[in-house]
């Protein structure tokens, strides 16, 4: 099949333009974080720094208590949340994929209905604050995203019924293995690709979550990195007020406009750095998510 070179060139040119549009804001952000504060005041955020400077990062590292703690919170909720989320999702999805499960249609409906109807923010907020008393606790960052709704359960259920051969499970059953043994000895290892995909989606949703922190957390020591970024967006002075324990001298020359950009870079860097490695699973997760629902 031969293609007209002009046509091929035009297609590539279009994608180069789109790629630039997609990447430009990131490049601007990174460039701004490496620019001298005075240069930003004089010339604004530029793609090529007027005067290169590491002041913003030096400031972040010298006042790193709050940032490191936020990173710790984010890492904790991401690891624990993803693990627990995967566990609970598969624990309910696997029995749902077996037609011998008692009350199967009721349980399916129970899971499915959560996709159709939501109670809304106010009752949700009251359940977590007034009933469970989780305001300003780490639980408020961990629990609401665990399953969110039944969507991942239904995805995982289809994955199990498509990829786990019924005969394998049956023969293990005949050999005297109980359901729990079958689940973690046979089903989970066979479902690794599905686990990777759903796990990645959970991981990204925990890493990126700012919403739960916004509504449930006022205590700055429990801020995830996203919440810290969120707070600094509204109040540039936030880091300065809460971080400098007695080091008032440094406060006079905080490079605010660049520090802001530097902390955004730090917030997004781990995800972008890991992106090439999980890109394949990410695309897969999005595609299966889109086909059903």
């Amino acid at each position: 099949m031969k293609s007209n070179p002009v046509y091929v060139f035009a297609v590539h040119a279009a994608f180069v333009a789109m790629s630039i549009a997609a990447l430009f804001p990131f490049l601007l952000l990174v460039a701004a974080s490496f620019t001298d504060e005075q240069a930003i005041i004089e010339h604004g955020y530029a793609l090529i720094p007027e005067r290169f400077s590491l002041d913003a990062y030096a400031y972040l590292f010298s006042n790193s208590v709050m940032i490191m703690r936020s990173y710790g919170i984010t890492a904790f909720i991401t690891v624990v949340g993803t693990t627990l989320g995967l566990l609970i999702t598969t624990l309910i999805a696997y029995p749902l994929s077996r037609n011998i499960l008692p009350f199967r249609s009721f349980i399916s409906f129970f899971v499915f209905f959560t996709l159709l109807f939501q109670g809304g923010l106010v009752p949700f907020y009251l359940v977590y604050t007034d009933l469970l008393h989780m305001k300003d606790t780490i639980w408020a960052l961990l629990l609401p995203n665990l399953l969110t709704n039944g969507f991942f359960i239904l995805l995982m259920r289809s994955f199990f019924s498509l990829s786990i051969p019924g005969e394998v499970v049956e023969s293990a059953y005949v050999d005297g293995a109980n359901e729990l043994t079958i689940y973690y000895r046979i089903v989970m290892p066979l479902a690794l690709p599905g686990l990777a995909t759903i796990g990645l989606m959970l991981l990204i949703s925990y890493w990126n979550d700012w919403y739960n922190g916004l509504i449930f957390i006022n205590d700055g020591t429990l801020f995830s990195i996203q919440n810290l970024l969120n707070r600094m967006l509204a109040d540039v002075q936030y880091l300065q007020q809460n971080n400098l324990s007695g080091q008032a001298a440094a406060a006079t020359s905080v490079p605010i406009s660049t520090v802001r950009m530097a902390i955004a870079v730090i917030g997004v860097l781990p995800l972008i750095a890991a992106y090439p490695f999980f890109q394949k699973y990410f695309v897969k997760g999005l595609t299966i998510g889109a086909v059903k629902g």
């Binding site: 609970i88 999702t89 624990l91 309910i92 696997y94 029995p95 749902l96 499960l101 349980i107 129970f110 899971v111 959560t114 109807f117 939501q118 109670g119 809304g120 106010v122 009752p123 949700f124 009251l126 359940v127 009933l131 469970l132 629990l143 609401p144 665990l146 399953l147 969110t148 709704n149 039944g150 359960i153 359901e179 729990l180 689940y183």
Partner: peptide, 19 residues
């Protein structure tokens, strides 16, 4: 095995619906 998940959905999704 389905109990933890159903309990979770009851608290996280159904209680707000009653709410």
């Amino acid at each position: 095995m389905v109990v933890p998940g159903m309990l979770y959905l009851f608290i996280n999704n159904y209680l707000p619906m009653f709410g």
